[in-house]
Design a binder for these strands. Structure first.
Length: 900
DNA sequence: ATATCGCATGGCT
DNA sequence: GAGCCATGCGATA
């Protein structure tokens, strides 16, 4: 770049950048002006100068370019401008009031500035991460307005330097406004680096190191951070870079530190990296170029943020809060490589976000974390925002509308029109989209990471399936080690201590949230009430499969790649000799059999499968338990699910108690919805629940995180809800009708006789029907009509837990893909005296018979709320209304009867 | 009736 | 308690 090429008519960067950031990346291709960018010069431009706010480069004539490169540009053209200050060290006058001069000085922690030369002697500097709006379509006026009016004005002065704030994203001290206006982010390292011997207190340095460590999760950076920590010298970074095993890492690392070196020619990406790296080195750097100027200046500015300068980095807490860890880019080198391809481009990870249901939904709006949007996307002043061109990992370009909505005196940023892209990537809720910037092009790249790759085992290794599905496990592993050495930060330490599970941690967090949101409100009678623990607990591992362990919300779960099976609920207990056993109920005879505690049972189990106790391998053999024993056993039992083994088992058991009251129902519901659907064998987990896979349309997966989305309200018309509700309603209504008619007749003639047999049924059906529209009426022990209540009491007189177990909704052979059309079979016209109703009635009666059988020993639920019984744990927030559960249970059985 | 838009709401951090 | 953000939901096309 030293020898200027022959003057070529090229575009004015500003204009080019207005339209297309890609175009701006190769700005020289557009011919708009041939004049030197310097308004004071009339020569023909021929060389690139400083980087413009637009992301392009000021194209200068030879003379101006030379002056710029020599650092004399301001002296030549801005001598009369304001903003001149003197170097605190050598006294040299330095212009601090223009974008050109931005590279020529550094702000000192203690105030004042240092010229480039002095700064070099004192500490390491990094590149200027000035915001590069290259990648967006902002109209120039708007960008100009945003940038020039806000950022620029700040840049011009020697006050808070914009891109010192920019690091904002990771810099706690920066305000959102700053972030939004100064989109340069980067140089977190600068903070730390600036804490060199000359300018900062050790404590500050340490603090900054911590911050720094938090910012970049990328492995390269970690390595660097490790090195930094180990060596206690930021300057080592540059050296370390050369020690990294791969060029990729070097590049990436360099990018991490020198990311947005703004003053580098487009054709010098490599040198940019070098420049930035070198700039980090305390040792004599290579010949200065404008790149280095940029780096230096960055360092300067970065070091001079008011906050830092005062030695009071109001950093950590706020910084962390400003960009939630879950948005931190956790790219592995492999991902970076894949995104950047094999080009010389380097990827600057920006942020990532796990798709929510609404993000991945049909609305086509991807909610962007505010901080991320303001930090990495172009500043927008109007709600309409601007189109944003994004390239996916395959190189395909998408244009989204980047905009915001006013929201509580704030903004809510969204990317609109993402549906095609989401679909193209086959993403769904739970998957993660990543945003990064391709340097030096400045392109915004959107990658993704399927949720599957975040399965426990994979997560441990941070294996990721990014856009191209390439595993980056190796890289990820490499990334980890360094963290253990930089855990000075509470955050970092936390992550490290928690088993280098940053992703898992995040997932856990997210899942936790989801889990909570899955709790169903009272009014959502038919909705699934399934928490993670519950779902997990009700599943059994597939045979002969070795699970991996993942901790979610403090509980350890076994995860399986293959589809799990619905396990049969059992009752764990200790026998007379103190041996742990489990009691399981035969599907056929309903007798309870004792099995070894460690036995995993399929969803269907019968006496004939009792290989552990041949003597009781037949339904004809009497039950070992007496009624009293059963009564004793069941109320106190905990439904321990074999697939969940936790060191917190006992605690979990308590929590799972409620499963008996609702989990089985929900699982029954699950079963109704389609086991096949719910657990496709070869796909990926969603955030909804680990067992489900992309494409799963089960009620769990399609349920909004809030757990009360319209899809599953009474008016929900989703396939699942329609199927469930229509069947339920149809069946129940017909049943009710028939029962009513029957009862009416019977009451007249054989009132007593009929009452004895039918009352338990009729109210149940009635109750079930009532449950839908009036869910809240189910929870109160005295709610609803006394009649109804009494009936319910009769119908489920026994311990609901027992009833749950006895009903055994886990029918592994259920046709879980029942077609709604088949509902036609249930048309009223066919039920009169038809087989369907008989089946229905039989099913119901069977159900009630079992209830009575199991409840014959009395009601152990003083509250009378059987289905709600949660074992007194009081931990269940999502309590399925009794009748809602009963409805599902009933429906389950009915469907089992109808569609064996 | 349906899709989309844009603000409102409220759970969560 | 403030702010974020996922989603709700009415208005509008």
């Amino acid at each position: 770049m030293s020898s200027p090429p022959p003057p070529l008519p090229t575009s004015t960067t500003a204009t080019t950048a207005n339209n297309n950031y890609n175009a701006s990346c190769s700005s020289s291709s557009t011919v708009l002006s041939i004049k030197c960018f310097n308004s004071d010069c009339t020569d023909v431009k021929s060389r690139k100068g400083w980087r413009l706010r637009s992301g392009d480069f000021a194209e200068l004539c030879d003379r101006c370019a030379s002056a710029y490169e020599e650092g004399s540009f301001c002296e030549a053209f801005h001598s009369r401008a304001s903003g001149w200050r003197c170097c605190e060290s050598c006294g040299k006058r330095v212009h601090c009031g223009c974008i050109v001069s931005i590279q020529a000085f550094t702000l000192l922690d203690a105030g004042g500035i240092a010229c480039l030369a002095c700064a070099r002697k004192s500490f390491v500097l990094t590149s200027n991460p000035a915001w590069s709006p290259l990648f967006y379509h902002a109209s120039f006026p708007e960008r100009l307005k945003d940038l020039s009016v806000k950022s620029w004005s700040q840049l011009a002065g020697s006050g808070p330097v914009p891109w010192r704030q920019a690091p904002s994203l990771f810099n706690p001290s920066a305000t959102p406004a700053m972030q939004s206006e100064l989109q340069t982010r980067m140089p977190y390292e600068v903070d730390r680096l600036n804490t060199g011997e000359t300018f900062s207190a050790p404590s500050l340095e340490k603090r900054k190191v911590e911050d720094f460590s938090e910012k970049f999760i990328n492995g390269n950076l970690r390595i660097r951070l490790r090195d930094i920590v180990e060596n206690g010298n930021a300057g080592i970074i540059g050296e370390e870079q050369s020690q990294t095993p791969s060029s990729l890492m070097e590049d990436a690392s360099a990018q991490q530190f020198g990311i947005s070196i703004p003053y580098k020619s487009l054709s010098e990406s490599n040198s940019q990296i070098e420049g930035s790296v070198n700039a980090l080195q305390p040792a004599p750097p290579p010949p200065f170029t404008k790149h280095f100027h940029g780096s230096l200046h960055n360092g300067v500015d970065s070091s001079v943020d008011g906050h830092i300068r005062n030695g009071k980095p109001r950093t950590d807490a706020r910084g962390r809060s400003q960009l939630l860890p879950r948005y931190w880019p956790r790219f592995t080198d492999g991902e970076l490589h894949q995104i950047s391809g094999n080009s010389n481009s380097v990827i600057k990870p920006l942020f990532e976000k796990m798709l929510s249901a609404s993000d991945a939904g049909r609305i086509g709006r991807l909610v962007l974390p505010k901080k991320c949007a303001e930090a990495y996307f172009p500043p927008i002043s109007q709600p309409e925002g601007l189109p944003l061109r994004v390239q996916d990992s395959t190189g395909k370009e998408w244009i989204f509308q980047f905009r915001f909505w006013p929201n509580n005196n704030s903004r809510m940023y969204v990317l609109e029109g993402v549906t095609p892209c989401i679909q193209n990537m086959q993403l769904q809720a739970g998957d993660t989209v990543t945003f990064s910037r391709l340097e030096p092009e400045g392109k915004l790249v959107m990658g993704f990471r399927k949720a599957t790759s975040a399965t426990p085992s994979d997560q441990d290794n941070e294996t990721s399936q990014i856009g191209n599905g390439v595993s980056t496990k190796g890289d990820a592993e490499l990334d980890h080690s360094p963290w253990s050495k930089v855990d000075k930060s509470g955050y970092i330490a936390k992550e490290v201590l928690e088993g280098k599970s940053s992703i898992r941690k995040r997932k856990s967090s997210t899942l936790g949230s989801k889990s909570k949101r899955l709790r169903i409100e009272k009014e959502d009678m038919i909705e699934l009430k399934l928490t993670w623990e519950e779902a997990q607990g009700l599943l059994r591992p597939p045979p002969d499969h070795v699970p991996s362990i993942v901790a979610i919300e403090g509980f350890e779960f076994e995860e399986y790649e293959d589809a799990p099976v619905l396990g049969k609920p059992t009752i764990f207990a200790t026998d007379n000799v103190g041996q742990k056993v489990q009691w399981v109920q035969c599907e056929d005879c309903l007798k309870w059999r004792k099995l070894p505690a460690n036995t995993l049972l399929p969803s269907k189990w019968a006496c004939s499968s009792n290989t552990w106790d041949p003597e009781r391998s037949s339904c004809s053999v009497a039950q070992e338990l007496t009624a009293e024993q059963l009564e004793y056993l069941i109320p106190s039992c905990k439904l321990v699910v074999a697939s969940k083994r936790s060191k917190d088992a006992r605690k979990e058991i308590d929590r799972v108690e409620a499963l008996e009251g609702e989990g089985l129902d929900t699982l029954a519901n699950l079963a109704i919805l389609g086991e096949g659907e719910a657990f496709p064998a070869s796909s990926q987990a969603t955030t909804k629940h680990p067992r489900h896979r992309p494409g799963c349309s089960c009620i769990v997966c399609i349920q909004p995180p809030s757990g009360k989305g319209p899809k599953h309200k009474q008016t929900c018309t989703c396939t699942v809800c329609q199927t469930v509700k229509r069947r339920f309603k149809t069946l129940m209504m017909k049943r009710e009708k028939k029962q009513s008619e029957k009862e009416a007749e019977t009451k007249q003639s054989e009132k007593e006789a009929v009452t004895t047999r039918k009352k338990p049924q009729e109210p149940s059906a009635e109750k079930l029907l009532d449950d839908e529209p009036s869910p809240s009426s189910n929870t109160g022990s005295e709610s609803g009509s006394p009649n109804k209540k009494k009936t319910v009491s009769e119908g489920s007189d026994g311990d609901p837990k027992r009833m749950k177990s006895s009903t055994s909704p886990f029918k592994g052979q259920i046709d879980l893909n029942i077609q709604p059309e088949r509902e036609d079979e249930l048309s009223p016209g066919s039920d009169s005296g038809g087989g369907m109703m008989r089946m229905l009635q039989d099913a119901t009666e069977t159900y009630l018979r079992m209830q009575r059988f199991l409840s014959s020993d009395g009601d152990n639920n003083p509250s009378g709320n059987h289905m709600l019984s949660s074992g007194g744990t009081g931990e269940k927030n999502s309590v399925m209304p009794r009748c809602g559960a009963a409805a599902i249970k009933m429906l389950t059985r009915i469907i089992l009867q109808l569609f064996p």
